[in-house]
């Protein structure tokens, strides 16, 4: 049967509009205005807090980048000095390096462990909810408490790790006193604290996957690794995408554990960007402008890295 061009026919005589075009325009504008107003009414409560405690502070911060003093001494306009200093300061370079090294150690470890645990947890017929709660326990721990707990782990004399090492006949390690070990110890703490959160997130995503696909793949003779590689990973892409971007954003802001455990030391080996920002703004009191400029530098760094990740992960 051959193709035939299908065309329309005009049906029905056009009736008379009862409102003039001007009236239509007016009524329509009023209708849309009311709808927009309703939507904005829903946004207002959140916007108030958002503006007061996020937008305005960011504005302030930007203003401060061009000034010195302001807290103790009077505020002085210094132009781009603070920005210039940020790129000259050795500790800025060190702190950025430390932060990036930390992210490169922490994020992959957390994800691999979490994904593995989520896959294992998915297979557990009984006791799943108990394990889920236990795994989440470290995430629920306040940093102050986590840091305390972690001192019991890494303490030179009576920490769990060294006690175990001694028992095995090995030399104890100076986990936080040694500049080579300190950042790794911080990473261990952060991984310990973070695994529960990501495990639950991955588990939730795994449970939501369509079962039929797995049955079909099993019938097709795919083994467990092939199913993981060619089904689970592609299907979890949205979750992994979200996880990678969020983990980058969060981990680049590493601060609490550093502040409590090592306060940037020893020899600045755990100095992170946010730690340095906090030092310049609060501890050194009058370097607010420098801290502000450094904050914007970090913001840019986060934005750029997040955008690169979004690019890379979206493409594939």
């Amino acid at each position: 049967m051959s193709d035939i061009t299908l065309t329309s026919t005009e049906i029905g005589a056009a009736g008379q509009l009862s409102l003039s075009p001007e009236e239509h325009k007016r009524e329509q504008r009023r209708y849309l205005l009311r709808r927009t107003a309703t939507a904005y009414l829903f946004l207002v409560p959140a916007a108030v807090f958002f503006i007061a405690f996020l937008v305005i502070p960011i504005g302030f911060l930007f203003f401060y980048t061009f000034h010195n003093g302001g807290i103790i001494s009077p505020r002085v306009y210094v132009g781009l000095d603070n920005w210039r200093n940020v790129f000259r300061d050795d500790l800025v370079i060190t702190s950025i390096k430390n932060t990036l090294v930390y992210c490169l150690m922490a994020i992959p470890s957390v994800f691999v462990i979490s994904m593995f645990l989520a896959l294992v947890l998915q297979q557990a017929t009984r006791g799943g909810s108990v394990f889920r709660s236990v795994f989440y326990l470290p995430t629920l721990t306040p940093y102050v408490v986590a840091a305390l707990i972690w001192q019991f782990v890494v303490h030179r004399d009576f920490g769990i790790l060294n006690m175990t090492l001694v028992k095995l006949g090995r030399d104890p390690v100076n986990w936080i006193g040694d500049p080579d070990m300190a950042l790794k110890s911080i990473t261990m703490l952060e991984v310990w604290r973070g695994v529960g959160f990501w495990t639950l997130l991955f588990l939730a995503a795994l449970i939501g996957l369509p079962k039929e696909l797995y049955q079909a793949a099993a019938i097709d003779g795919a083994n467990a690794w092939q199913r993981f590689r060619h089904l689970t990973i592609p299907l979890l892409r949205p979750t992994i995408f979200f996880a990678v971007v969020m983990a980058t954003i969060w981990n680049l802001q590493l601060f609490d554990s550093v502040s409590i455990m090592t306060n940037g030391g020893p020899q600045n080996s755990t100095a992170t960007v946010v730690w340095y920002i906090q030092q310049t703004t609060f501890a050194y009191t009058d370097k607010v402008g420098f801290g502000a400029a450094l904050s914007f530098t970090l913001l840019m760094l986060i934005l750029v890295l997040a955008l690169i990740e979004i690019r890379l992960l979206r493409k594939r």
């Binding site: 405690f53 970090l298 934005l303």
Partner: peptide
């Protein structure tokens, strides 16, 4: 644009806003 603003603000480190927030 407003939602994009929300997304971007996810990336702001709170520690950086400590001083201005304190002043407010």
């Amino acid at each position: 644009p407003l939602f994009l603003l929300v997304l971007i603000s996810l990336m702001v480190p709170f520690a950086a806003l400590l001083i201005p927030t304190f002043i407010i």
